[in-house]
Simulated scan of single mutants.
Amino acid sequence: MQKLIGFVKNIVVLASVCVCVWCAWESLGAWFSERGGEAFLFAAGMGIEGAPESETEQGTGLPPESSAVPEEVHTDGALPDDGVVPFHSDLLPGFTATPDPNRSSGTVEEIQLDGGTPIDNFFVRDSTESGTDLAAELLESPDVHIKGDGSVEVLIYHTHTSEAYSKEDSGFYYTDMETRTQNQDMSVVAAGEELAKALESRGIGVVHDKTVNDLAYNGSYSRSWEVIQKNLAEHPGIQVTIDLHRDSMTTESGVKYKPTAQIEGRKAAQAMLLAGCDASGDWGDFPDWEWNLRLILRVQQKAQELYPGLMRPMSFSNSKYNMNATRGSMLIEVGTEVNTAAEARYTGRLLGEILAETLLGLE
């Protein structure tokens, strides 16, 4: 009799388990039907809350000091994929959206910067009050004549060589994060290297000078001026000098902005071209600023034509920043410290394609 009672109990337990499993399966099936592919991503631990879109803009000046954590070195020439996902997606595979509660952290907001005065197909933020007719300057030919025969005609250098990027696209940052680094795979040097390779692939000879000019931040521009002069003496065919930086944008509430564009299905750090001006002639050593302006306007125009959204509004300001070195001098900001190194490298490559198209197309 005891055996019979035990057998009946086992049957009842088994039946209960089957009912529970069947109910759970029905609920799960309904959830998957409702959520579709998102449900599978969530089940795999890949679904997180995403930052809302924003049109807020802050900061257009030169960046402060910068750095990041080491990253593996890639020697095969390929751009590493460090969590690149669609712009504003709420899916960041491989990374956590929850910071360590034992470390002070802040929010990263991914934005796309635009606005300014429309000129042709792009925008310019003109703070010079010089009355310069930018539309008319765009029609003027730059004084740059690139042969594209492999001889050195472009110099890429970095006044703030240690400015760094982040390793991961995580949606937050730690307030004690390093923003400068001597690991040149994680700094503006990496973006410059991609820029150089893209230009060289089109037959434009490049010197990429990786001299560290900001071990002591004060005096960086004096040191980079010496770098420019050294290279001009060694390569008298240089017509274009590019000072590649990265920016930094943080609100009073501690939100760091990450200017980002999606180009051909991949995230890129938004870049900004800066053209200097000395309309009053007060400096006395920058009489050719209009020649730089004409070239930079052409580059901005070509960028918008090839990769809409990649560039922030062009900045035209009362500044010099060593742009009095040649008639083809420019300063470029690529992203901020919370853009990833891979995003910055991708932008470097795109900038190379834009510059090649611009320079080789000049009369």
Rank of each mutant, 00 (worst) to 15 (best):
D76I: 10
S33I: 05
E38D: 14
S66W: 07
I48T: 05
H88Y: 15
F95P: 00
T107K: 13
D76C: 00
E129R: 03
P63E: 03
G94N: 11
S67K: 03
W25G: 05
P80V: 11
A78C: 02
M46T: 00
T117N: 08
V69Y: 09
E57M: 11
Q58Y: 15
L91S: 04
S27H: 11
I119W: 02
T96D: 13
E26W: 14
V73D: 07
L92M: 04
E71L: 06
E55T: 03
T132H: 06
G36K: 15
G94A: 07
E26V: 10
L92I: 05
S54Q: 08
G37N: 13
P93K: 10
E110I: 09
L62R: 01
A78S: 15
A39W: 03
Q112A: 14
A44W: 12
I111H: 00
F32S: 11
T128P: 01
E109D: 09
G37A: 14
E129D: 13
T75S: 08
L113D: 06
G50R: 10
G116Q: 02
I111Q: 00
D81M: 12
T132D: 07
L41Y: 03
E26I: 10
R35H: 09
T117H: 07
R125I: 09
I48K: 01
S54K: 10
W31T: 06
I48W: 04
L92E: 08
L113V: 08
L92W: 14
T107E: 08
Q58L: 14
L28H: 09
L28A: 15
P101E: 09
P99M: 13
G59R: 01
S66V: 00
T60V: 02
N102I: 06
L79V: 08
V69H: 00
G59E: 08
T98M: 13
M46W: 07
F123Y: 15
A78M: 10
D133K: 05
S89R: 05
S104Y: 04
T75C: 02
S89T: 04
T98G: 00
H74K: 12
G116N: 06
L113H: 01
G131F: 07
P86N: 11
A78Q: 12
S67E: 01
L91E: 12
V69T: 10
T75I: 09
P86M: 05
I119D: 05
S130L: 01
L79Q: 01
A68C: 05
D133A: 08
G116H: 12
G115A: 09
L41Q: 13
